[in-house]
Amino acid sequence: MLRHTVIQNVPIAHAGGVRTPAAVFNEIFTVFLGLGTLVGIVVCAYTVYNAYAYRDTGEESKADADRPELGELPTGGGGGKKLFLSFGISAIIVLSLIVWTYSTLLYIETGPDSQQVQENALEINVEGYQFGWQFEYPNGQTTSGTLRVPQNEMVMLNVTSRDVFHNFGSPELRFKTDAIPGQSTKTWFVGQQAGTYEAKCYELCGTGHSYMNATVEVMPRDDYQQWYNGSESE
């Protein structure tokens, strides 16, 4: 009852401008996909090219003087410089990608820089069970199957489980975290577009796992306020 009076209104602090996890993911994924495709094509093409270029044509070649023989002890095989050059290049690509993504990892871990947005984040407890999801809002009310959140608001989810290991995630809003019995994990998102989104279970949890979906309703602020207050009395 006390909680009712303390949190009468849903906090007002626009998170409309923050970089959402979805935006972060899309950006990084695009870069990785571009580079990955490029590197994949180049390396595979070069591999196939070599296999073709050095095919056995039956003609003698200079290298024939030094072919491996049965019973020899292995020796180096040379080519070290080239090896290290290409190794170096690949290492640089991989390492710079990772260093670059690390700062975004920190961002995803800690949330938007704006103190105001953070402090006013709407905290919702999520509990998975075989086979569904229950949501508990700051005013103590709960819903099952549908998570309702206000538009342009940072939403912080505390996720746990009542029985087995589940995982709560949304493909469009790009939040995802494990739902572990006895522990709670956090994840956050901002719904910048009102609408209905999907959330799913991403960890095998029994026969009903495939059906263990929920919907996420991102509602315009006023609608949300109305629903939130109206349902208080439930």
């Binding site: 290298a63 292995p74 180096g76 095989g77 090896l83």
Partner: peptide, 8 residues
């Protein structure tokens, strides 16, 4: 390939 492994 009839070659020894490069950089064995």
């Amino acid at each position: 390939t009839g070659r020894r492994l490069v950089g064995r």
